[in-house]
Design a protein around this nucleic acid. Structure first.
Lengths: 224, 224
DNA sequence: CGCCATTGGTGACCTAGTCACCAAAGTTGT
DNA sequence: ACAACTTTGGTGACTAGGTCACCAATGGCG
């Protein structure tokens, strides 16, 4: 059709004409409102999703009821993990939730399989996406095991802050993002506030000392 | 050749004749002694390894020098993650170390790519392997975040014990397996010993109360 | 305005990771 | 056989962080 969505995806722009046509014909664009459960444990996906707009948070519920945040899928990325279970016919254990209104391209299993067979470029796109996700998980594990909470929180605040230096998230949300307890976030933020690095109000944290937060993050090796 | 190695791999036994021939012709069997670094960060792999015998431990070094154990590849499994970086031309950050003498089938990039294109069965094999690894990583994260150390240690001891109910590993080794400190292992094992669940001697832990350990593991939801 | 759900704060307590040691058991060289 | 050294395991004191049981403040809403 018009300026194709395909060009929003780095690895796909090099696709030859015929494959592009197949891909466009064999897929469709879907939209879901914020808050929708995009995929859930026990329901095997049959579409690969490529995000055009919005973000999807992927997390895992533990038996104890708490949740760990695994990673966030941004526009221009794909929900590769759904692919894994799609092709392996395996259900998997993570939830995907639309954090914002989301629009995405849904590629059904048959189209996907077909393209993987036919196009080396598409194959590379898929495997690159995998590779990136997996290294993300590795660094997540590394962070959880070795990094201090204050460092991880500082880094996450910097990541989540908007242009005005504000983070719109409750302590509880930040806690699940980092896989910790709300109380820990409250205490750490109080400490940050005491040092003049942030100001707090209900449901919001304003960063008043980005530089200091940055220094804290840097002071302990590379960040996430 | 003789009874093909292909039948050692569940997902591959259904391969049609011609593909089997391609696979055998385009790959070779390699052996490495215990302790060999099978792959390392910064060195991009150009073979997919399918393990015939032995085990490979995959771990990640952190900036701080400590190591996290990620997972173990057993005979009959493949080092899928090497694949990811192989096809994505990305280096990745984990070490692979042969824990025992290892023999494996090495499939070079060209053969691999060719087979993925040609054979749906091979594709499914690859994606299933991925899927399994990824869910493993998910449960690892879950365990790290939510499970108590004593439960994780008990579960690991049961896993590692040989037929005589003995685990041949130093406290330090157990510590890196679980991503914790040696002292924690020492203390937890002392407690297990006090309760009569294990007996210790240098470099060895004998399980004398499998049932009790099992109960501890079960008492807190499913295990790893 | 008063009720109630959401959000944040706090102290007491426990688990686990860290640091700085030391002691016991093997190993090696002479 | 013995001394020196390395590897392995043990311990106490301390800190970080997770848990529990609360309560207080805020803001939405009838």
């Amino acid at each position: 059709m018009d300026a194709s969505w395909i060009d929003k995806f780095n690895g796909l722009s090099r696709l030859p004409e015929d494959i592009r046509a197949d891909l466009e014909a064999g897929s469709q664009i879907v939209s879901v409102p914020a808050g929708t459960q995009v995929f859930a444990p026990g329901q095997s996906a049959d579409n690969l999703l490529l995000l055009l707009d919005g973000t999807v948070r992927v997390q895992q519920k533990s038996e104890t009821g708490r949740e760990v945040f695994l990673y966030r899928v941004h526009a221009g990325e794909s929900c590769v993990l759904t692919t894994a279970c799609m092709l392996a016919f395996e259900d998997y254990s993570a939830d995907g939730i639309a954090e914002t209104d989301v629009s995405a391209v849904a590629i059904p299993r048959t189209t996907f399989d077909d393209l993987v067979a036919k196009s080396p470029v598409f194959r590379e796109f898929v495997f690159t996406a995998y590779s990136r996700r997996i290294t993300d998980l590795f660094t997540l594990i590394d962070d959880i095991v070795f990094k201090r909470m204050d460092v991880r929180l500082a880094s996450r605040l910097l990541e989540l802050s908007d242009d005005d230096g504000a983070v719109h998230a409750t302590h509880a949300v930040l806690a699940t993002e980092l896989g910790t307890a709300r109380e820990v976030i409250s205490r750490t933020l109080s400490e940050f506030q005491r040092r003049g690095w942030v100001e707090q109000s209900r449901g919001e944290v304003r960063l008043t000392g980005r530089a200091a937060l940055d220094r804290l993050v840097r002071s302990s090796g590379a960040q996430s």
